[in-house]
Design a protein around this nucleic acid. Structure first.
Lengths: 181, 181
DNA sequence: GAGGACATGTAAACGGTTACATGATTAC
DNA sequence: GTAATCATGTAACCGTTTACATGTCCTC
């Protein structure tokens, strides 16, 4: 797959970023669907530099801290990203550990399973709130006169997250009801 | 995580199975949310045997083929599985490559993005059909007099898959409409 | 004084994917 | 004759996770 590279380019297509920024944005802005650790980001950034997909855009030195190395995407990086975006995508499976546990609910006392479902529901309710806030924020900064505003794409993806969380919550509710009767 | 072990026990809780059976069932019955390769299944089965979570239940020899080694879960395996089922579950992220691509849709011509969305939609429509068939099959063999029938748990999980596919299809439709206008 | 944010990176371990190896049978 | 199915298993690779390492500033 090696999609970490493309996840990184996806962010760099919008603005120049340091490795640290990329890591942060993945674990917040891209929260619903991607994340990465520093061990992946820094070596991959170095590789992409070698291959000419990104270049050093500037170094910000704060004397007491490691230099902040900001990279920007090159034209060749943009072409690579577009090629990938329009290329074929393998189907994915859901692979959610909690669904596996639900598959075992016949094995346990229903009264013991219900609290687990309620916890999961709450967890997804919290995620839903976060995504709803995010989509509001994005709508505020959206430039409605520009049909190619990247913010529009962000909104579309966060909206997927919103619908997903709603589904999860509804499914938990449903199962709780079934187990209660 | 190491949930491959618990995915395997999840299947073995229902009936004795060979390594081959486990692999097959994961890639079909558990289709919506889990899968595994033979390289994971056979060594893990051996490890679980050593640890006493499963025992050899019987060997079926068909002379020209490798012996079919059927395992069944032990009481200790069942306890382990129940413990895990009721234990805490880490939140998961979606990590869907196509969503990452959708995040880049502002970079490409919309007319080029639309066919990709239509392909994805079709793919999920096919999955939806499969899950709908599966849930019908399961309903046919469901023992309605038994509130602890494992089939009930299977149905609940497949229903998650159904709602997920519906969501995906609706989201694709929505985006196609947005990009067309 | 402890812990978190910032900022770079490396090392080790783990889990999953793809491919390989063997080998007879059955269906196209 | 080619490919798929059944049935076991191994080997190599790749991507991800967790932990480590360094060091200062700022907040509680």
């Amino acid at each position: 797959m090696s999609s970490i590279r493309f996840a990184m380019l996806t962010l760099l297509a919008r603005e120049p970023l340091s490795g640290y920024d990329i890591k942060q944005q993945m674990n917040s802005r891209m929260g619903p669907f991607w994340k990465a650790g520093s061990n992946q980001v820094y070596p991959e950034l170095a590789k992409m530099d070698e291959e000419g997909l990104v270049v050093l855009h500037g170094v910000e030195q704060n004397d007491y801290r490691p230099a902040r190395k900001v990279y920007k995407m090159t034209e060749s990086g943009l072409q690579e990203l577009i090629r990938w975006t329009l290329g074929p995508t393998e189907p994915e499976i859901i692979r959610d550990e909690f669904l596996l546990k639900a598959y075992n609910s016949w094995l346990v006392e229903f009264e013991e399973m219900i609290p687990r479902l309620e916890e999961k529901k709450k967890e997804h309710e919290e995620k839903l709130t976060i995504y709803l806030d995010k989509v509001n924020e994005l709508n505020d900064i959206l430039d409605r006169s520009n049909p190619r505003d990247p913010i529009l794409s962000s909104i579309n993806v966060v909206e997927f997250g919103i619908e997903y969380e709603k589904l999860y919550i509804k499914w938990c509710d449903n199962l709780i009801e079934k187990l209660k009767s």
